[in-house]
Simulated scan of single mutants.
Amino acid sequence: MTNFATIATVGFVFIAMGISLWQKLNLEKDLLVATVRAAIQLTLVGYLLQFIFDADRWLYILLMITVSVLVASRNSASRGKGIPWIYLRVFVTIATVAGFTLTMMVTMNMIDPDPQTLIPISGMVVGNGMVVSSLLLNRMKEYAESMREEILVALSLGANRSQASRRMTTQAIKAGMIPMIDSTKTVGLVQLPGMMTGLIIAGTPPVEAVRYQLLIMFSFISSSALISILLGFLVYPTLFNKDHQFLGWGKRS
Rank of each mutant, 00 (worst) to 15 (best):
E150W: 02
I151A: 11
I151E: 03
L152R: 11
L152A: 10
V153A: 12
V153C: 00
V153W: 00
V153M: 07
A154R: 15
A154P: 04
L155H: 06
L155W: 08
L155S: 10
S156H: 10
L157D: 11
G158V: 03
A159M: 00
A159N: 11
N160S: 06
N160Q: 09
R161W: 01
R161E: 02
S162K: 09
S162C: 00
Q163G: 02
S165L: 10
R166F: 14
R167M: 13
R167F: 10
R167G: 01
M168I: 02
M168N: 00
M168V: 03
T169L: 11
T169I: 11
T169D: 02
T170M: 12
Q171C: 02
Q171N: 12
Q171Y: 01
Q171G: 01
Q171M: 10
Q171K: 10
Q171S: 12
A172H: 01
I173Q: 13
A175L: 02
G176N: 06
G176R: 02
M177S: 02
P179D: 10
P179L: 14
M180T: 15
M180D: 15
M180C: 15
I181A: 11
I181D: 06
I181Q: 06
D182C: 06
S183R: 09
S183M: 14
S183Y: 00
T184P: 07
T186V: 15
T186F: 02
V187Q: 12
V187H: 01
V187C: 12
G188F: 03
G188V: 15
L189R: 04
V190H: 03
V190K: 03
V190C: 07
Q191P: 08
Q191H: 13
Q191W: 08
L192P: 15
L192M: 15
P193K: 12
P193N: 13
P193L: 13
G194R: 09
G194V: 14
M195W: 10
M195D: 01
M196C: 06
M196F: 11
M196E: 11
M196L: 10
T197V: 03
T197Q: 11
L199P: 13
L199F: 11
I200D: 13
I200S: 13
I201N: 05
I201Y: 08
I201L: 14
A202V: 08
A202M: 04
A202P: 09
A202F: 04
G203Q: 08
G203D: 05
G203N: 09
T204W: 00
P205V: 12
P206T: 07
P206M: 05
P206L: 06
V207W: 12
V207Y: 15
V207F: 14
E208I: 04
E208M: 10
E208D: 14
A209V: 07
A209D: 06
V210K: 06
V210T: 13
V210E: 08
R211L: 14
R211W: 14
Y212S: 07
Y212D: 02
Y212M: 07
Q213H: 02
L214I: 14
L214Q: 14
L214G: 07
L214S: 12
L215K: 00
I216R: 05
I216W: 01
I216F: 01
I216E: 04
